[in-house]
Amino acid sequence: MRGSTHLFSGLAAASLLGTDLPGLGMAALGALLPDIDHPDSLISREITPGAPLGRIGRGLIGLAILGAWYQTRLPLLLTVGITFVALAFLPHRGITHSLLGLVLAWLAVKALGWPQAPFLIGYGIHLAEDLLTPSGIPLLYPWQERMRVPLIQTGGIIDRALGLTAMVIFLIAAWRYVPVLLH
């Protein structure tokens, strides 16, 4: 699935469940995070634009962030630093596209004290959508067998229609936030 489809599907689901504004941010993070292991994904392009040397660059960025954590002891820096170092070694649609990845990401979100339910909604929607592609996902990682129900081609008409529908649902459901944002 395309990054925009994941993003709007996660946002639509969370907004329909009455998530507040910070929760919507967490739903967006959860919906995009599984693809952080792919250098051309929406989240990777936004977080590490032009990272030198691809995976090696991510590892170096992670080490720099861990150095900042060592100086400040901010838990967020530790979590992000470890993540970036790990990304230097992880293949796309590996652990981040599994139930184990979901649990590990949820534990990090919980440890940081961030909203958990919307994050889990976004992450779960991402996994469900990628399960519907021919590539499938290793849902029971470390078992490498990919599970799939090949109904949707990434970038195909159904993917685009799903993304557009989710965007419209999100915009309608999020309309209630307009007065809050204007004040």
Score class of each variant (00 low, 15 high):
38 H>S: 13
43 I>V: 14
131 L>N: 01
181 L>N: 08
136 G>Y: 05
123 Y>S: 09
34 P>L: 09
34 P>F: 07
63 L>Y: 06
125 I>A: 11
145 E>L: 15
126 H>E: 11
43 I>A: 04
126 H>F: 14
21 L>Y: 02
36 I>R: 01
65 I>M: 03
69 W>Q: 08
20 D>R: 10
82 I>T: 05
136 G>M: 03
120 L>Y: 02
84 F>N: 02
122 G>V: 00
116 Q>E: 13
137 I>K: 06
133 T>I: 05
42 L>G: 04
34 P>H: 07
13 A>C: 15
104 L>T: 08
170 F>D: 00
114 W>S: 01
62 G>K: 10
163 G>W: 00
24 L>F: 09
69 W>V: 04
62 G>E: 00
167 M>T: 11
73 R>N: 10
183 H>K: 14
129 E>T: 11
122 G>P: 06
112 L>T: 03
71 Q>R: 13
104 L>K: 13
89 F>D: 12
165 T>I: 11
59 G>Q: 05
128 A>C: 10
162 L>R: 04
170 F>R: 00
57 G>W: 12
30 G>M: 06
61 I>V: 15
17 L>V: 04
115 P>H: 11
68 A>Q: 08
119 F>M: 12
106 W>D: 11
142 P>Y: 09
145 E>M: 11
120 L>M: 15
8 F>M: 07
164 L>C: 09
44 S>T: 11
14 A>W: 00
161 A>P: 01
105 A>D: 01
166 A>D: 07
86 A>H: 09
74 L>H: 10
181 L>D: 10
78 L>D: 04
145 E>Y: 12
56 I>S: 07
152 I>F: 06
134 P>F: 06
70 Y>I: 05
147 M>F: 15
41 S>H: 10
38 H>G: 13
1 M>W: 01
83 T>R: 01
37 D>L: 02
142 P>S: 12
84 F>C: 08
112 L>G: 10
138 P>D: 07
55 R>L: 09
44 S>G: 11
58 R>D: 03
3 G>I: 02
111 A>W: 15
86 A>F: 14
162 L>Q: 06
150 P>I: 04
37 D>V: 08
55 R>Q: 08
37 D>A: 14
1 M>C: 10
31 A>E: 01
96 T>F: 14
152 I>N: 06
13 A>H: 02
106 W>C: 13
18 G>Q: 12
59 G>H: 01
179 P>E: 13
29 L>D: 07
14 A>I: 03
4 S>F: 14
162 L>V: 14
114 W>E: 03
97 H>Q: 11
102 L>I: 00
117 A>K: 11
83 T>Y: 00
8 F>P: 00
67 G>W: 09
1 M>D: 04
31 A>W: 01
81 G>E: 04
57 G>V: 08
73 R>C: 03
97 H>V: 07
5 T>W: 02
154 T>V: 14
115 P>N: 13
57 G>T: 07
59 G>P: 07
49 P>S: 08
133 T>V: 04
109 V>G: 05
99 L>T: 00
145 E>V: 15
155 G>V: 06
56 I>N: 02
97 H>A: 07
6 H>W: 03
161 A>Q: 09
85 V>Y: 05
162 L>A: 12
84 F>R: 02
130 D>R: 01
2 R>K: 13
